[in-house]
Design a protein around this nucleic acid. Structure first.
Lengths: 367, 367
DNA sequence: TTGTATGCGTTATCAC
DNA sequence: GTGATAACGCATACAA
């Protein structure tokens, strides 16, 4: 096979001429929408092969409308955490299935360096992809409008995120509140009563999860303390996740009354939190029980193996792609579907029952 | 502003009609390539605004050639390590500058689940972006051919990677061999003579770095041992980086003669390696000195703070974008340029001088 | 079954 | 300055 494309790319007209057929015949041979003799078809495909012909995607879309093999992916950020992995995994699965699936990032939804979400989505919509797969976390309303336009124009939309919302397409939801309930119940079953939570993100998006946390405490008969809620605030919003764990540790150590258990919704933050407390002489699980989130390999391999809640990235990605394919193949009900995916608690050494009299028990243990 | 795009999108003809001018006048008003009264121009822009007009990108590219604000990004993988961060950072910078910069991933270059690199690049090339920014790590030759075609057709290419290669455009190189030299010299200056290296990747791409390692050992008068080179092999290629560190630790512990120092080219692998040795009673830096790579925040915050070689992601990304902009604005020499970027060693507690008589010194230390 | 004509939305080249 | 007209490459309806 020669790479002859140094000259101008061949057009379908060139192919038709080479194959000795009319232009429309050649077109029909590629789309398959036209009945013709196997003989002619073979000749045309052969000619296309030799000329190294590839259809011009812009001409195709100008003439025929939507492109079939192009799906745009939109994520919030690509540089951090499991959301990035989901987007990347979805891209991978789609690429393997022969789709072109470029990935676009919104940038952060809060604070400086913000990207024009609406503009980005409009640009994408104008490209007329077959579908848009979109991370719905902190999607602005104007973006939802754009997506609705896109669907109205015949596009297809699949979303994934942490809470379902009024959305013009199917959604795959990882139920992050379930993890919070599980963690709280676990701590409670171990006898803990002073339970904290740490979100290594901007407070902006933690409302629903925080409410779940409060409700769960109440239903366990425990009290909620605002100072036992940790966020990436006070200038730490831009820090790397691990740094946020360090900040949390500093705040924790300044507390007059310390919790005996904490759920930190990111393993790396939890690990640096744990290491930082260790330096201050506060040990897990003796002095504090810690549960992380995402169940990264390092959690299991850490100095003190970290209990963690799993984050089924693969499952989410596969659900998204499956729903998408069902829609593309027209075998899906009209109304938008919602699939909920859940993780589970993996217990390791960073959590332990609360010791009633801490001092004595520790001594006894140390003997 | 109303979102009227529920109906079919306005075309330039609609704008011209609304503004009471000819179609081509309207076109000229947008491109600015036509002289006209400010009055007319304002009217046209106004009309476009009201009709919520956006040019159809496909029609533009069909007619006018290359799109100006579209730059395609191509990376190897997006799900792991610092290469992903570079791609993401470049995307960010370009998006902030008003470019549409979708990110495509090749998938892995070796092993199963391989993506058709050539096909992907061809698809991208056919989209006629203004430029292609490409991770050159383990680029297949056919892809280089595609890129050359792209340049021949008037496109622009910028590459970034770990070694410069015969490439049809500017390149930004992070000199990974420099880090290896630095690490070896550091160990040597501490008195270490049995020095190992660990690459948490497939052996496929480590050739040049391994040679640098050997050369550096020789120039320090030290011996090279093949069994002191660790790779992600034996089925571990697909494992997460941290898991590879665990595998390396297992192999290390089985060694008849153990090295006293090791450079592992990824912090997470180095951390899990260190934790795993700890469980086996082998402590850093007492029994082994460890240097990681990338200088991730967790390295600094780990149980034993890890010495690490920095990885200037930001610098690479900025160099790439700067070179690109210089080219786009035509203020760059014709011949392809190469910029080399280097990191530096950050020393922490995981490295220490070799103790001449380990047993006695340790006892003395413990007193 | 095969060839022909028209339109998609834009840019660019001309005459006016 | 402004306004028709021809590409650009493909799909499709329609005529042969």
């Amino acid at each position: 096979m020669q790479i002859s494309s140094l000259s101008k790319s061949a057009t379908i007209e060139d192919v038709a001429r080479a194959a000795g057929v009319a232009l429309s015949t050649a077109s029909g041979a590629f789309s398959g929408k036209k009945r013709m003799s196997e003989q002619t078809r073979a000749t045309i495909l052969q000619a296309a092969q030799e000329l190294n012909y590839t259809p011009n995607p812009h001409a195709q879309r100008l003439a025929g409308g939507r492109s079939l093999k192009h799906i745009d992916l939109v994520a919030l950020r690509l540089d951090v955490g499991m959301d990035a992995r989901k987007a990347q995994r979805i891209q991978r699965l789609l690429t393997e299935r022969g789709y072109s699936a470029p990935l676009h990032a919104y940038g952060r939804s809060v604070g400086e360096g913000q990207v024009d979400q609406r503009g980005l989505m409009e640009t994408i919509r104008r490209q007329q992809p077959r579908a848009i797969v979109c991370d719905t976390t902190s999607l602005q309303d104007e973006v939802l409008e754009e997506l609705k336009c896109f669907v109205a124009e015949g596009g297809m939309v699949i979303g994934y995120g942490y809470h379902d919302l009024d959305f013009p397409g199917d959604q795959v939801i990882f139920d992050s509140r379930h993890g919070i309930s599980q963690a709280v119940r676990h701590f409670h079953s171990l006898g803990h009563e002073r339970i904290a939570i740490g979100f290594p993100t901007h407070p902006h998006n933690t409302g629903p999860r925080l409410r779940t946390f409060q409700n769960e405490l109440v239903s366990c008969g425990l009290r909620f303390q605002a100072q036992w809620v940790f966020h990436a605030d006070g200038g730490a919003e831009d820090a790397e996740t691990e740094e946020i764990g360090v900040h949390m540790a500093a705040r924790f150590l300044r507390l007059a009354e310390r919790p005996s258990a904490i759920f930190i919704t990111n393993d790396y933050a939890a690990l640096s939190f744990m290491a930082e407390l260790h330096r201050a002489g506060v040990e897990a699980p003796r002095d504090i029980s810690i549960v992380g989130h995402d169940d990264r390999p390092l959690a299991q391999r850490a100095w003190v193996p970290l209990s963690s809640f799993t984050h089924p990235v693969e499952e989410v990605a596969q659900c998204v792609v499956q729903m998408l394919e069902e829609r593309l193949e027209g075998r899906a009900a009209d109304e938008a579907r919602v699939i909920v995916v859940r993780g589970e608690l993996r217990l390791r050494q960073s959590t332990a029952p609360l010791l009633v009299d801490k001092g004595r028990s520790v001594k006894a243990k140390g003997k």
